[in-house]
């Protein structure tokens, strides 16, 4: 089994405003519009999931949202209503969900670390873009993922 390749990470705030978008492979920068579209699509699915009255689980990890062609999207929904959308591409369509869960939890942790900075602004698109800690930690997570 081959480990899935990370495609992009999108972070949306409590009002579904996009706070951060990281396209993992620099060669795919030209697919920005498509990935933004996928992010918006995932937000709709997330809102349906969390507003479902019959949903019994309170887990922050929402699991697989959907598959668009060859890209699968997973979501993590924090207590402060910040949504973390991670898109992966698996050649054989087999993904270990526990690994995705762990990775999203680590991303959530470094996000919390970054927004706790008293010198950063309120949670705006600028906050994470200007955070050196967040960028370096995220790139470290990504390279660790690619190695193991």
């Amino acid at each position: 089994m081959v480990k899935p390749r990370l495609v992009f990470l999108s972070i949306a705030g409590p009002k579904d405003e996009q706070l951060y978008l990281e396209i993992i492979d620099p060669k795919e920068k030209h697919l920005l519009a498509r990935y933004q579209y996928l992010g918006e699509l995932s937000l709709d699915v997330i809102n349906d999931l969390v507003n479902d009255g019959e949903r019994t689980s309170n887990d922050c990890f929402l699991g697989l949202l959907g598959v668009e062609e060859d890209i699968s999207t997973y979501a993590f929904y924090s207590n402060t209503k910040v949504k973390f959308i991670l898109a992966v591409k698996a050649p054989d369509y087999v993904v270990k969900e526990t690994e995705i869960r762990q990775l999203l939890r680590r991303i959530y942790t470094i996000h919390t670390h970054a927004v706790c900075n008293p010198f950063s602004m309120d949670l705006t698109p600028e906050t994470l873009k200007t955070s050196i800690y967040f960028k370096e930690s995220l790139h470290q997570l990504i390279s660790d993922w690619n190695i193991h």
Partner: peptide
């Protein structure tokens, strides 16, 4: 631990 001082200060 949670503090990153901006460049100008």
């Amino acid at each position: 631990k949670f503090i990153s001082v901006p460049k100008e200060m």
